[in-house]
């Protein structure tokens, strides 16, 4: 029998097309990605069927973590700078310009007024660790002041509450009470999307 010669094919492929595709996808992901904001705590939010998206601007975010620590932040960096300016003035904390600037880089913070100066002087990432949360008890309520002053700077701020699934209701209650005492009656809870079940007839 004659031997059948299998023609040797060059196994090297033309990678150009693949490369094109890879970079196309890469471009898509780079452009569509929104970098996760660095927050002092990870909050595991509950899900609901609410359809409305969280507005992109003029946002005031009050977060509650698992242990019930309360964090406060507004989305605009310039406004954060104004806010800390106003807070330093009203509460009479002697903050330097550098410290104020440092505060304005924080997306959200849970630092009581008493420890503000100490925290703002912590180097690097250490500022994110072990923040005690903003006191919101009836005896010492700093949350009311934060929300009130932020509203003074930008009255258009929309209030969103981002609570951890497993945080106790009493902490949410504190926030609700603080908002009510400021005569603010609209807020929204941040949730993940869940598909709405079929309406049964």
């Amino acid at each position: 029998m004659p031997k059948i010669k299998v023609p040797r094919k060059n196994i090297s492929l033309d990678m150009t097309a693949m490369c094109d595709m890879a970079f196309l996808l890469l471009t898509f992901f780079i452009l569509s990605t929104k970098m996760n904001v660095v927050e002092p705590v990870a909050v595991d939010i509950p899900s609901s069927t609410a359809k409305k998206e969280v507005p992109a601007d003029s946002l005031m975010m009050i977060s509650v973590d698992k242990e019930g620590k309360i964090y406060f932040g507004i989305d605009n960096q310039n406004q954060r700078l104004k806010l800390i300016d106003l807070v330093a003035q009203r509460v009479k904390i002697p903050l330097t310009d550098a410290e104020k600037h440092r505060f304005s880089t924080l997306e959200s913070a849970g630092i009581p007024f008493g420890q503000l100066k100490m925290f703002l002087n912590k180097p690097g990432d250490k500022i994110m660790k072990d923040q005690p949360g903003i006191p919101a008890d009836s005896l010492k309520n700093e949350l009311i002041l934060w929300v009130g002053l932020a509203k003074e700077i930008n009255p258009m701020l929309r209030i969103t509450v981002k609570g951890d699934r497993d945080s106790n209701f009493e902490h949410t209650k504190k926030i609700i009470d603080a908002l009510q005492s400021l005569n603010l009656h609209h807020l929204s809870f941040v949730t993940n999307l869940e598909t709405k079940p079929e309406v049964r007839r």
């Binding site: 998206e53 009656h185 609209h186 807020l187 949730t191 993940n192 999307l193």
Partner: peptide, 22 residues
Amino acid sequence: ITFFMLTTNLTKKHAMAINLPD
């Protein structure tokens, strides 16, 4: 691509509006 796929969060957060009484 792998890096960006893993770091990106495509799921948008949604807001549930609550109205508090006076």
